[in-house]
Design a protein around this nucleic acid. Structure first.
Lengths: 253, 253
DNA sequence: CGATTGCTTGACTGGGTTCAAGGCCAGTGG
DNA sequence: CCACTGGCCTTGAACCCAGTCAAGCAATCG
C-alpha cells in the first residue's frame, strides 16, 4: 500500500476536489472546508485559537487514519477527499457505517478509545486536533459545542435511516437509496445528473450489507431498467430519478 | 387503545419499574430517573429552572408518543417503563432503531420535525419539555449541552454497533448480541442471570431485522444448545454467557 | 505482454422468509 | 364451570433472494 506524496487519486476523484487550499500554511481563514464544517461556528476573531492547535495530515487511498480500539487522542475534520468509517467482526466481515466528505467531522468518542476504524477511500487531507486542547476550546466557545451537537443529531438521523435500509430494504432498494444519497454529496461539478462513486464495489457492498456480486448485478439491473446509465464503473448518470425514489422507499431524499 | 390510569403492565414489567416516584408533584429532586439522565448535569440549585418547564405524560402499552413527521415541539426523558423508536416504509415494513429505558433522553431533532416514531412498549411515564424553553436552558447551562453531546456520542456508537449487526450478522449472532445487550439494561432485580424482555417477538424481530418466526426458531435453537433457558417467553435465563459472547461477535459486551 | 486488480456474469446453494397450522393462555360470556 | 375467542408464540414445509463458487473480461501496470 503506497504512502507516497504524489498519490494517485484515480482520475475520477479530482473532480470532487476543489483545487483550492492545497499547500496551506496553518490559517483557518483560507480553508476551503471551513464554511461547511464545525469550524464555521467560530467567528473570524476566534479562529486563531483553533488554528493554534490544528495540523494537517494526508493519506493515500487505502491508508488507515486510525483503528478501532486505538486511544482516541485526536479529532479530525475532512478537508479534501473521502474517508470511510467501518467496524469489523473477528472473521473479517466488514460494515462501513459511513463515508465522510470535505467538511465532515470525525472522532467524537466518549470513551478514550475509538469505537470504529477509519481509512482513506481516495487521497485525503484531514485537519487534526489534539483531543485535550480541542475540549478546552469547547468550554471556551459554547457555539462550537452547540454546532457539534447539531452535527451529532444529523449523524444519528442518518444512522437511523441506514438501520432501516440494512434491516428492511431489498438489494434494489438499497442501491436506489445509496445513489440518491450519493447524489447529494458527490454530484459531478460539470454534469448535474452524474454521480461520482469514489469508492469500490466492495466498499458499496460493505456499506449496504451486500456482496460485491449483488451490488454489481443490481446496478446492472437498474441500468437495464433505464433508471441509470454507467459511462464507467465509477460514474452513474441518473436518468429517471422518479423511478429511483420509488424504489428507494422515498424518505423525501 | 385504552389510556386508563390503572394501565396493565403485563405482570412481568413491574419487575423493571422501581416503585419510587409514583405520584410526583413537579420537583426534579425526588425523580427516580434523575441520577441516570441528562438532568444529572444540573446542580440541585439549578434544578428548579428545569422543573419549571417540565410536565409528566403517561402512556399505555402500544400508545404512540409521537409520529415521524410530527412537528418536533417537545423533548422527553423516560422516567418509567420502556418505549421504542422506529421507522416505517410505505408498505409497513418496520425497523425499530432503539428501545429506551428509564433515564434515556428522547427528541433530539435538528430539523423541526421528528424523523422517527415513538411508541410505548410497556406502561410508561415520560418527563416532557417544550423545545423552545429547553433550548433556552441549554444556553443558560452549558453543562447540560455537554451532557447531551456525550449522550449523542453514545447513541452514535450504539447505532454503529447496530449497523454492524443488521448488515453483517447471522440470525443467531443477532439474538446473542441482543440478549447480552438486554442483560445490561433489563436484568431481573431478583435474579442476576435472568433477563426480562418487555417487548414482543414482533418488536425483537423489527429491531434485529428478522421475522418473528426466525426470532422464535433461533431462540429455540439457543435454548436447545444450552446457552439459555426460557421460564416463559418474556424471561430468559442466561446459562452460558461465554457461548453467547462467542456467538455475538464479542465487541466486549 | 503476461500478471494483477476490479468489475461483471453465470450456475448453484442456503439461510431466512413466507405461508400455514397448531399450542398456550387470559379474558369473556353463556 | 366450561366453551369460545383472540393474541402471542412456536413449529413445519416450501420458496426465494441474496450469498457462494467460479469463470470471464477490461484496464492498468510492471
Amino acid at each position: 500500500m503506497p504512502t507516497n506524496e504524489k498519490s494517485p487519486d484515480g482520475g475520477v476523484i479530482s473532480e470532487l476536489v476543489p483545487a483550492v487550499a492545497r499547500r496551506e500554511s496553518g490559517g483557518c481563514a483560507a480553508c476551503g472546508a471551513r464554511t461547511q464544517s464545525v469550524c464555521a461556528a467560530l467567528s473570524s476573531g476566534d479562529l486563531p485559537a483553533m488554528a493554534a492547535i490544528r495540523s494537517d495530515v494526508r493519506f493515500a487511498p487505502g491508508q488507515s487514519v486510525f483503528f478501532e480500539g486505538d486511544p482516541a487522542d485526536f479529532l479530525f475534520n475532512v478537508k479534501l477527499g473521502v474517508v470511510k468509517l467501518f467496524k469489523l467482526l473477528a472473521d473479517g466481515r466488514t460494515q462501513i457505517t459511513g463515508f465522510l466528505f470535505p467538511g465532515d467531522f470525525l472522532g467524537l468518542a466518549l470513551l478514550n478509545k475509538y469505537s470504529y476504524s477509519v481509512e482513506a477511500v481516495t487521497a485525503a487531507e484531514l485537519c487534526k486536533f489534539p483531543r485535550r486542547e480541542f475540549e478546552a476550546l469547547l468550554v471556551r466557545f459554547p457555539e462550537l459545542e452547540h454546532r457539534l451537537l447539531s452535527n451529532a443529531a444529523n449523524e444519528i438521523a442518518a444512522a437511523q435511516d441506514q438501520m432501516l435500509l440494512l434491516g428492511r430494504k431489498t438489494a434494489q432498494e438499497r442501491l436506489a437509496t445509496f445513489l440518491l444519497m450519493m447524489r447529494k454529496r458527490a454530484t459531478s461539478p460539470t454534469q448535474a445528473d452524474t454521480v461520482i462513486l469514489p469508492m469500490s464495489r466492495q466498499d458499496i457492498g460493505d456499506f449496504l450489507g451486500l456482496t460485491i456480486e449483488t451490488v454489481s448485478r443490481t446496478v446492472t439491473r437498474l441500468r437495464k431498467s433505464g433508471a441509470i446509465e454507467l459511462p464507467d464503473p465509477n460514474r452513474v448518470v441518473i436518468r429517471d430519478d422518479e423511478m429511483l425514489k420509488d424504489l428507494s422507499g422515498i424518505e423525501d431524499l
